[in-house]
């Protein structure tokens, strides 16, 4: 990946974020370039096809929620977005680049680990199981990326990390190690860690699925704050209420394809496909009393 392409991408994305946070969803023509464009993305391993041609777009500043039964490929697709899983077919463009390949001299050249690393700097990811660095304090976790990846000086990175921790309400816990924090606190540190890299896109892989029910809201609140600031987000989740309230776009995955896409309220109240209806009725049935508003 050459510097020119990189700079162009960043400029484009930043301009997009600043220009039209609440730009009309799907208004690609004339508006900012979409952050994610997937067409016919296929992926599989060991003879099992996980993604069977996924079409998916995310506009700049959009909060795109993804739901679907387990094994539908939604998490795998999310991991394709930052190259943690390889795309085997179709085309996946993220932040203006074909993930995993660079076009040069009329051919696509596979990325080196270094090029993958440079690409991922602009994409934050939050995992289901937090994955905080176990040997580092909360503060060190947040400062880790800037120090070791961006080369920010140690004291400057710590000051910034403190600001990010403060933002997720954990300034008082800066010097605790992950095992001394609750699940909800760990996940908020993980969000702060991703934000410390100033990403142009944030990926959330079922961020509240490993949490005790009473800890879910503190994480969702942080995510709502991010959405309000215009962060481009792709959120794989089971929190239907969050998708309805915060999401600009809702996508239903099943069997490795996108079954249905639409505005959350419309899709949730009047799903077009039988498959979506069946899934929603089973999920909403269990979440009815607790989280629907």
């Amino acid at each position: 990946m050459n510097a020119g392409v990189n700079a162009g991408v960043n400029a484009g994305v930043n301009a997009g974020v600043n220009a039209g946070v609440n730009a009309e969803v799907g208004a690609v023509d004339g508006g900012p370039a979409p952050v994610v464009v997937a067409s016919g993305v296929r992926m599989g391993y060991g003879g099992v096809q996980v993604l069977n041609g996924v079409d998916f777009t995310v506009a700049s500043g959009e909060v795109s929620c993804v739901i679907g039964p387990s094994g539908s490929g939604k998490s795998t697709f999310l991991r394709c977005l930052n190259g943690l899983e390889p795309v085997l077919g179709g085309s996946l463009r993220v932040l203006g680049e074909e993930v995993g390949h660079t076009l040069r001299d009329g051919r696509y050249h596979p990325w080196t680990p270094k090029e993958f690393a440079a690409f991922r700097r602009n994409i934050g990811m939050v995992f289901q199981r937090f994955n905080l660095f176990a040997h580092q304090s909360a503060l060190e976790n947040v400062a880790c990326g800037p120090v070791h990846v961006l080369g920010t000086p140690q004291d400057r990175a710590r000051t910034l990390a403190m600001e990010h921790l403060d933002r997720v309400g954990l300034a008082d816990h800066a010097h605790k190690r992950p095992h001394q924090l609750s699940g909800g606190q760990q996940q908020r540190v993980a969000i702060a860690r991703a934000l410390a890299m100033n990403p142009a896109l944030m990926l959330f892989d079922e961020p509240t699925s490993a949490l005790d029910p009473e800890l879910v809201d503190e994480v969702l609140e942080v995510m709502k704050g991010l959405a309000a600031e215009g962060m481009t987000m792709v959120v794989v989740t089971h929190e239907i209420a969050f998708a309805r309230e915060v999401g600009d776009r809702l996508t239903f995955f099943a069997d490795g394809v996108v079954v249905e896409r639409g505005r959350p309220r419309e899709l949730l109240t009047a799903p077009e496909h039988e498959r979506t209806r069946a899934f929603l009725s089973s999920v909403l049935g269990s979440q009815e009393g607790s989280s629907t508003k």
Binding site: L84, G124, F127, N131, A134, G145, H148, M197
Partner: peptide
């Protein structure tokens, strides 16, 4: 394995991930 994934997601190269995240643990 999640430690490695988190390191990659932050934009670390495999060598840096080994040195900064995996080996210390």
């Amino acid at each position: 394995r999640g430690q490695t994934e988190a390191a990659y997601a932050l934009g670390m190269t495999p060598a840096k991930r080994m040195r900064v995240i995996v080996l210390p643990q």
